[in-house]
Simulated assay, not measured.
Amino acid sequence: MKRTAASATMTPDDGRPAMSGTAHLTVERTDATLVLTLNRPEARNALSPPMLVALYDAWLAADADDTVRSVVLTGAGGAFCSGMDLKALAAGGPAEGPWRARFKADPDLHWKAMLRHHRPRKPVIAAVEGPCVAGGTEILQGTDIRIAGRSATFGLYEVRRGLFPLGGSTVRLPRQIPRTHAMEMLLTGRPYTAEEAGRIGLVGRVVPDGTALGAALETAALINANAPLAVEAVKASVYATADLPEDEALRRELAIGRPVFDTADAAEGTRAFTEKRPPVYRRA
């Protein structure tokens, strides 16, 4: 796979999504996959103001770029994310500087960055190594596919610190895993191994340590080979119908899925199958 640094550089206040990242978030392209790496290994990739700003800009940039077909979210230095930077939280939020202006302009920015108030239209795959706790486990719940190294750890530690998991976990977690497991994770604040996270369905696959990113990129490549309009419609339908009664959900599914059959890509997929060749999809 060809991996390159994202080249577009945009200022934080020019109204356009940035592709360049910051010191706390690296942004790279691997073929049609955008790889976002939380990059504060000295702090186990705790969420910082510049990281959150860059992360939200990267979500927007991925959706705005039709050559990006999937996104992989991972962490540097053998950790995924240890949650919010509690030192910054205790100090009252972002320090003075360019980041404060972004948060002032959009008080919801941190929730969008953490995928609480924003859902990318492209599939998002989490590649987890090491700690993925507190806010890390909350961001995880906003991803679509989750792959973890065997030594990864998970947990919602907020109640142990007198805090509340405001990243959406009291709503999302009971909808994603059995309620009894969600309640235990939320109320005990205890750590979970990758194997246990796999058993309860918090992650989909556990792989040998050090291979989560490779496995995520392999999964992304499988997604990238498919018709992008179909992929995005499938993702949209899954989320749009999740909480609807079945009859209403099926009507919504038809509204989202039926137009896919009228696309040039649908005709290309059928033609390529008949001609026994790989399809060439053009998002049309």
Rank of each mutant, 00 (worst) to 15 (best):
M51F: 00
A54P: 01
Y56K: 10
Y56A: 12
D57L: 03
A58W: 04
A58P: 11
W59D: 03
L60T: 11
A61E: 07
A62I: 01
A62P: 00
A62S: 12
D63M: 11
A64R: 08
D65Q: 08
D66K: 10
D66N: 11
T67S: 15
V68F: 03
R69K: 15
R69A: 10
S70W: 07
L73I: 13
G75Y: 06
G75K: 12
A76N: 03
A76S: 13
A79G: 02
F80Y: 14
C81G: 07
S82C: 14
S82A: 15
M84W: 13
M84Y: 13
M84N: 07
D85L: 12
D85T: 09
L86E: 12
L86D: 00
L86N: 09
A88K: 03
A90H: 05
A91H: 05
A91S: 12
G92P: 07
G92R: 05
P94S: 05
P94H: 01
P94L: 08
A95F: 07
A95H: 05
G97T: 11
W99A: 14
R100F: 02
R100T: 13
R100H: 06
F103M: 04
K104Y: 06
D108A: 10
D108E: 15
L109A: 04
H110L: 10
W111R: 13
K112E: 10
K112S: 08
A113F: 04
M114V: 13
M114S: 07
L115A: 10
L115E: 02
R116P: 05
H117P: 05
H117F: 08
H117D: 15
R119T: 14
R121Y: 02
A126G: 01
A127Q: 07
A127M: 09
V128R: 10
V128N: 06
G130L: 03
G130D: 03
G130A: 11
P131M: 12
V133Q: 08
G135A: 10
G136Y: 07
T137C: 14
T137W: 04
T137Q: 10
I139V: 15
Q141A: 13
T143K: 04
D144I: 00
I145Y: 14
I145R: 11
R146Y: 11
I147F: 11
I147A: 06
A148H: 12
A148R: 09
R150S: 15
R150F: 05
S151N: 14
A152N: 11
T153N: 07
T153V: 14
F154Y: 15
F154E: 10
F154Q: 13
R160M: 14
R161D: 08
L163T: 11
F164W: 15
F164E: 12
P165W: 00
L166A: 13
G167I: 08
G167E: 06
G167K: 11
G168H: 08
G168L: 08
G168P: 09
S169N: 06
R172P: 07
L173R: 00
Q176N: 09
T180Y: 02
T180P: 04
T180W: 01
H181Q: 02
E184I: 01
E184S: 13
L186H: 08
L186N: 10
L186D: 05
L187V: 00
T188A: 12
P191F: 02
P191G: 00
Y192T: 02
T193D: 11
T193S: 15
E195P: 03
E195I: 04
E196V: 00
